[in-house]
């Protein structure tokens, strides 16, 4: 038996919004420690890794590990029908063929039950290697969204160059070019508005704009985002979710020909 209850539907809505455009279907791997999901796009350029820790749930029970193959669009559509403050309980029998969803209003005067058919999803969990990153940039997630969106009007690649002085996002396209530099915040009243740049080695890497734009749509998950860059390893973009876990996106760089 698997059962997981979140006190507020809002967090699940945000999580599904952030991954469902990149992930059509995936396996929710449920174990005693929580729920995880990994999904790569068909060209193996990007990967989404989601972790929802058991302690982030109001109630959590998973007697034996199970994989729930889910169409993320279908799940997203159903979860969207819940009120933001509704409690949501996900459940599945050990050898069941559906994922059950129960929404309970805060007044407990409305209870909705849905079932989503499970599917066979051919995807195995990868052991994501621990990477050595040369640079870690923490910045407001809304700023990252703005920068990727603004540069996407010009070019299909964004070069991210980072030194101790700042991080530069630049692009070139048929119509021209553009670049935006963010400096490390000198004094910050609000942690979440800070730009913090940690540099072991300066680095410049180029990435496909369209994926960065997709990732940056997760801004609702956290006011801050971290970009981790290293030579020979994928970019890792992380949106932490307090005690709940994280959504991480991995993106292979563009390589010089």
């Amino acid at each position: 038996m698997f059962e997981a209850r979140v006190a507020q539907a809002e967090i699940l809505k945000k999580i599904l919004d952030s991954v469902r455009e990149l992930v059509e279907q995936g396996n929710l791997d449920c174990s005693g420690t929580g729920i995880s999901l990994q999904a790569m796009d068909s060209s193996h350029v990007s990967l989404v890794a989601l972790l929802l820790k058991s302690e982030g749930f109001e109630r959590y029970r998973c007697d034996r590990s199970i994989n729930l193959g889910i169409n993320m669009q279908s799940l997203g559509k159903i979860v969207k029908t819940a009120g933001n403050h509704d409690a949501i309980t996900l459940s599945s029998e050990d050898k069941g063929d559906v994922l059950g969803l129960m929404f309970e209003s805060t007044e407990q005067d409305k209870v909705s039950n849905y079932e989503i058919k499970l599917m066979d999803v051919d995807a195995e969990q990868l052991a994501i290697p621990v990477a050595e990153y040369s640079v870690c940039v923490r910045m407001p997630s809304a700023e990252f969204a703005r920068i990727t969106r603004d540069l996407s009007t010009i070019g299909d690649s964004v070069l991210i160059s980072c030194t101790k002085d700042g991080v530069q996002f630049s692009t070139t396209g048929d119509t021209g070019s553009g670049s935006i530099v963010l400096r490390q915040s000198s004094s910050v009243d609000d942690e979440k508005k800070a730009v913090v740049i940690e540099v072991q080695e300066p680095i410049s890497l180029s990435f496909a704009t369209k994926f960065l734009v997709q990732f940056s749509k997760s801004a609702a998950l956290n006011e801050s985002v971290t970009l981790n860059l290293g030579d020979g390893v994928p970019l890792m973009v992380e949106y932490p979710m307090k005690e709940m876990g994280y959504v991480r996106f991995y993106l292979a760089p563009k390589l010089s020909n």
């Binding site: 790569m40 193996h44 990007s46 990868l126 994501i128 496909a208 991995y250 292979a252 563009k254």
Partner: peptide
């Protein structure tokens, strides 16, 4: 000129 890399080598996928 650049070409898009992939994640295969990072994850040891052949």
């Amino acid at each position: 000129k650049t070409k898009q890399g992939n994640l295969n080598s990072f994850f040891g996928i052949k």
